[in-house]
Amino acid sequence: MNLENSATQTTDTRRKPMGMLSVRVLALLFVVFLAAPAVLGEFWVEVATEILILGLFAMSFNLIYGYMGQISFGHAAFFGLGAYATAMLFREFTGGTEEISYLQFFVSLAAGIPLAAFGALLVGYFCIRLTGIYFAILTLAFGELLFFVVFSWYSFTGGDDGIQRLLPPPLFRDPVMYYYLCFVIVIAAMAVMWRIVHSPFGYLLRAMRDNQERTRFLGINTRIYMLINFVIAGSFAGLAGALWGPFTRSVAPTLLGWQESGIAVFMTLLGGSAFFAGPMVGSIIYTFLHAWVTGFTQYWPLTIGAIILIIVLFSPGGLLGAIDAWRRIRTRQGSSGVADNTLVKEEPDS
């Protein structure tokens, strides 16, 4: 069976492949992000850094939601584990003095990935046995469990205090330099993610998403592939978490909480889960709006709640979904209604 065709023939607008749109959006974002520090002040450079880190986090979540078709409400646990792994190595290296070498800094950042991957392996081992709402609830339960462990284990994690003094080495204390560090790492991570979702493994994920039972009947051990994807998603979330600690100079258990997981869900819905670039676009909308709205009102939760409501009701495919629908209408109008299939054939799967 041709999995690519199977995936491309779905009629659900949320599942339609939109590779070319993602490529165009990513190319545009690359240029914008590259040039951003030249035109933005320090505050907005920090907002842009936040966009990149949380965008990576949301993209990692979308490997589970958009590509595998399962929703995780505990994904922040891996973001938090990555952040804590980096923070604890920082603490070991600096001995509380705030002096860290460049090598130690990069080793600390790298440590976030294996710890988060290990956490994802443990959690995933149990979660992949279930699908749908049961999968979601189990991820939530494990997420809260890990949150509680970090929150309560004072002697090891610092409890609710978290860990402070995560000052990067001198060069990266400059917000612009830290921004470019995140930019390079996030671009590299996205390139790896792109390769993964466009590999046979990626198409297998889509097949499982569209019809897991049929995929199993083909002789594929879906659990193994779900677990592998869960671990990959957890690793990228861990990388995002690792970048977050030195950015805010501290970590706290709330990074592992369900509310943080909710941010990844929001971002993905805002941008469009059917698109590779969707979560990053969602991160831009969410983070920029947050920075803008909190400048003049304390009612941020009300604002984002209203936006999510509008998106879910009127554009369930997110912003990129709306853009794509508009493009399709225009194309159809321009070619007497025969363009729909042409479009699908022209655009590789996202």
Partner: peptide
């Protein structure tokens, strides 16, 4: 509003200082 969450408090501190 810090929401009584350290990561939010740090972000908002940066916000009022830099913006």
């Amino acid at each position: 509003d810090t929401h009584t969450k350290p990561d939010v408090a740090a972000r908002e501190a940066r916000d009022v200082i830099n913006r």
